[in-house]
Amino acid sequence: MIPSNLRYHQEHEWVRAEGTQATVGISHFAQDALGDIVFIDLPKVGAKVTAGQQIGEVESTKTTSTIYTPVSGTIAKINADLKDHPEVVNSDPYGKGWMAVIDLTAPAEVDQLMTAAQYETFLSKQKH
């Protein structure tokens, strides 16, 4: 459930870097902890974001969770399908449940994020 080609943030977002762009979403662990996702508030295209900043919110039947961007840059694209089908994040968090594409201003930030193996260790510590 932790794809090896992605990088991970301690707030349970994933990043897939391709050149100067990165796609961002939330991890399987995050969607599972949230339960049924019913609404997602995404940033506006063109918004400038800094790594660690809040860029949106995920609402589930149980609670609200903040989406943080693990990388800095400009929002190039958002997943508009999530407006009517937020549940896709539950069923396919690493695929159709992607949230935003960011034009990176500091691509090196990606290398500072956790690898899949590191994230797995991180999760096992969280679950103690």
Partner: peptide
């Protein structure tokens, strides 16, 4: 139990 199959499904 807060849920089994999922809150919306059970609803």
């Amino acid at each position: 139990p807060i849920q089994y199959s999922g809150v919306v499904d059970e609803y």
